[in-house]
Design a protein around this nucleic acid. Structure first.
Length: 507
RNA sequence: GGCGCGUUGGUCAAGGGGUUAAGACGCCUCCCUUUCACGGAGGAAUCACGGGUUCGAAUCCCGUACGUGCUACCA
């Protein structure tokens, strides 16, 4: 194994959405490609937003997608603990180190004080308060307070935060694997809070400390982090870890299909498609279905996600996980956001269903049939059926409509279109068909078709006119595979029963 | 407002000085199939705008516009 260690750091504050899974996927692909480790760390720095059960949910999703992090990189072990709330003391220690070296300071302003000041400035027409080089000396912090006062306040445990002291007129330069060299002026970044008053670190401190301690070599995250990247680069510098800074890549956003903007959970509800990998039980909104429940194959799901912002330069669009590991390159990831297209997502699934062998597909379909109370204990029949109908199924849930009549006698028969053109001659044909089929011994597709056509010829009715009623009798509607395929699979008794029953209805 | 990032058909996109500007999804037409699909053939549809540089720009540079992200004791 190489020393490449790539980390994925979702926050357990909700379901794992498309962007999250894609970030995980790119992390995984890169790690595997370099024979490195895929590290998962849980971002629970903000306890107020932490949702119970979300952490397990993340694992379940990654497992479904076949992109689980490596053993030992997500459980207490060599680099553990991996949960930020269990690493609290560590962060404090490094924050204090920064204060000592003059790169950070204690700030005693209460949130109310800052809020008031903000509003005051706003009223004066100034856009926003930046707690930075321009304002920090007007605030209540250890840079302006006499040392004794600071010490006294700390002694009585007066609520305070630790802020990073950003020097003015400097330029932070760093390289992004996707965007190339980026340069930003420190004058635009404010004195970010490192430690909150509740003793928890902010993301900025946590991510840097964790990545360093866990020997992370590559950090890929969403584009929304780009503006705060200078803070992280500066933190590496001030902590003396400049040579251990991971290589960055800021992934493009996944945009909503209509209009622009980041795809949100609401867009899914509004536009009628899932935004989560798997069903998520939202404490406020209840159960929200995911791609899994909607009938997506995980292979298709990750294939679709990977291609939303990446391609290997060839015309190939269908990739297995292994192929993606082989062909992926972070440099070929687009720098701009991509609109999510549910139609294309379904196309990927359709392609995967078509190429998947019937036996494999049958296993994946079991839960869907069981949910609908369809008995699929006959594995041989099941595979035959699946092989026969899979070309016409886009989602796994489509198999129910496309194949339930193989297992259950259809109940809702659409006889109207048949009734309209029904004649005594046609009726006679089917009476004779029953008789002929009753004598059939082998019950094979070709024999059934031959007998049907011979009888049709004898009755002087065009086969086409008889095939349609036959389909309605067997299927109940105007869909499904060839009628003789259906008859041969459901068997002699069931076929004759279905013809007999509908014949009664048509009289 | 400030700062960052971006901009090739409706969508995903290839292409990185000379191309008839690939391919895919979706849409339309036709063929195949006595259903619905699958499959096959074809079609409509694109380089945001304005300046440079150059013999030549979708491609390089500069502006503008537009979009988007950040600007929290959220991540």
């Amino acid at each position: 194994m190489s020393n490449v260690r790539v980390r994925f750091a979702p926050s357990p504050t909700g379901g794992l959405h498309l962007g999250g899974v894609r970030t995980a996927l790119y992390n995984y692909l890169f790690a595997k490609q370099h024979d490195g480790a895929f590290v998962l760390r849980v971002e629970d720095t903000d306890q107020t937003r932490y949702v119970e059960g979300a952490e397990q949910y993340i694992y379940d999703c990654l497992e479904w997608c076949h992109i689980l992090p490596d053993e030992g990189t997500h459980n207490p072990g060599e680099y553990g603990p991996y949960r930020q709330s269990e690493r609290k003391e560590l962060y404090r220690q490094y924050a204090e180190q920064l204060v000592k070296s003059g790169h950070a300071y204690y700030a005693f302003d209460t949130p109310e004080e800052i809020e008031n000041l903000r509003e005051k400035l706003k009223a004066e027409g100034k856009h926003n308060l930046q707690y930075d080089f321009q304002n920090r000396l007007n605030m209540r912090n250890s840079l302006v307070l006499p040392q004794e006062e600071t010490e006294a306040l700390l002694k009585i445990n007066f609520p305070h935060v630790i802020r990073l002291k950003i020097e003015r007129d400097e330029f932070v330069r760093f390289n992004d694997l996707i965007r190339g060299d980026i340069e930003m002026s420190t004058n635009n970044v404010d004195d970010k809070i490192l430690m909150k008053a509740d003793g928890m670190p902010t993301y900025h401190l946590a991510v840097v400390v964790d990545d360093y301690l866990m020997k992370i070599t590559h950090a890929f995250r969403g584009e929304e982090w780009l503006p705060s990247a200078p803070v992280h680069v500066l933190l590496y510098k001030y902590l003396g870890w400049e040579n251990h800074m991971p290589k960055w890549a800021h992934l493009p956003l996944i945009l909503k299909p209509d209009g622009n903007g980041k795809l949100s959970k609401r867009d899914g509800e509004r536009l009628g498609f899932p935004v989560f990998a798997m069903e998520w039980n939202d404490p406020n909104k209840g159960i929200i279905k995911g791609f899994k429940e909607l009938g997506f194959l995980p292979e298709a799901f990750i294939n679709m996600l990977a291609l939303l912002g990446w391609n290997d330069g060839s015309e190939q669009e269908i990739f297995s996980l292994e192929e993606m590991v082989d062909k992926f390159s972070i440099e070929r990831v687009q720098a701009h956001g991509a609109k999510f297209d549910f139609e294309k997502a379904k196309w990927f699934n359709h392609e995967w269903i078509k190429k998947m062998p019937a036996d494999d597909l049958s296993r994946r379909l079991e839960p869907f049939y069981i949910k609908h109370g369809i008995n699929i204990s006959d594995k041989v029949k099941m595979e035959k059926v699946v092989g026969l109908v899979k070309d016409r199924c886009t989602l796994l849930t489509d198999f129910i409509l496309q194949s339930s009549f193989f297992f259950i006698t259809p109940e809702n028969i659409d006889v109207a279109p048949v009734q309209a053109k029904w004649t005594a001659e046609k009726n006679q044909f089917f009476v004779e068909l029953i008789r002929a089929y009753q004598l059939s011994i082998l019950w094979q597709h070709d024999d059934l078709e031959r007998e049907f056509k011979e009888l049709a010829a004898a009755s002087r009715i065009k086969a086409g006119e008889l095939l349609f009623p036959f389909r309605i009798m067997l299927v109940g509607g105007k869909f499904g595979p060839g009628v003789f395929d259906i008859a041969s699979i459901i068997g002699k008794k069931e076929t004759i029963n279905r013809i007999t029953n509908i014949l009664q209805l048509l009289k």
